[in-house]
Nucleic acid binder design. Structure first.
Length: 239
DNA sequence: ACATTAAAGGGGT
DNA sequence: ACCCCTTTAATGT
């Protein structure tokens, strides 16, 4: 597929002159990775920056007890990895594809020469990292003080913002309420591993959410329909 | 922890 | 390219 078109969809390169993208083309070779393959691990010899051109990648840590803690799920256009002293996401993180993905790998030198040649990319990069930091801080507060219900609501809300797609006419329609479909398959296991709970509890809460009309699972391909407004309201009413 | 159900993978036609 | 069977994963109790 068209390389430039892919590049323009990467957050870091969004809104840039196509001419720039042309010049970046040669240094951003892409790799096709099959579903369920490890893209990066703490053992990776090289510290690289990765661009997700298409597909889906899950970042997670493994705790001492062998449990996986999902840090984030990245879709098309997102970047991750480490490049020099800048890091997006923490160290000791595994990255695994959730579906067949098209991923581009940039090593430290390539990254540095890109930034040197295009300083405004450096600024953009800082913006992205800063945004991430904000997300993490917010999450931290919630994890420390929030109930499981609150944490789940928060996660759903965030996933909505990231992967919500507008619903079509055939799907859920209600006056005044917008429903979005999540462009991602969220299993109870994954929610558990993000909310730091146990699966049975997640199942129970999700059942309640359906009952309270905030989410709806009567939809194809296991992708939830969510009503973000109601989620937000419930979040405020929580504790 | 178990039973049921749904999805993914593989092979053959 | 399609369908069916087997295996594996997800869900509900």
């Amino acid at each position: 597929m068209d390389k430039i078109k892919y590049l323009s969809r990467i957050d870091l390169f969004k809104g840039l002159d196509p001419e720039y993208l042309e010049s970046l083309g040669p240094v951003t070779p892409a790799h096709i990775m099959k579903r369920k393959t490890i893209v990066a691990s703490p053992q990776s010899p090289q510290k690289c920056l990765f661009l997700v051109k298409s597909g889906m990648v899950r970042l997670y840590r493994v705790t001492k007890g062998g449990k996986e803690l999902t840090i984030d799920i990245l879709g098309e256009g997102h970047i991750f990895g480490e490049a020099g002293s800048f890091t997006t996401g923490a160290e000791n993180v595994f990255a695994e594809t959730l579906e067949d993905s098209y991923i581009c790998k940039i090593n430290k030198h390539q990254f540095e020469s890109i930034i040197t040649a295009h300083p405004e990319l450096g600024l953009k990069f800082i913006e992205l990292v800063a945004f991430r930091l904000k997300e993490v801080e917010e999450m931290l507060e919630l994890m420390a003080y929030g109930s499981v219900r609150k944490r789940l609501l928060y996660l759903l809300d965030r996933v909505c913002q990231k992967y919500g797609e507008p619903t079509s006419v055939h799907e859920k329609q209600e006056a005044d309420q917008t429903w979005v479909r999540l462009g991602i398959q969220l299993t109870h296991q994954e929610l558990e591993s993000m909310a730091g709970s146990i699966r049975e509890t997640v199942t129970e809460h999700l059942r309640n959410f359906v009952f309270e009309g905030m989410i709806n699972k009567a939809s194809f391909r296991n992708r939830l329909l969510v009503c973000p407004d109601r989620i937000k309201k419930a979040l405020e009413d929580c504790d």
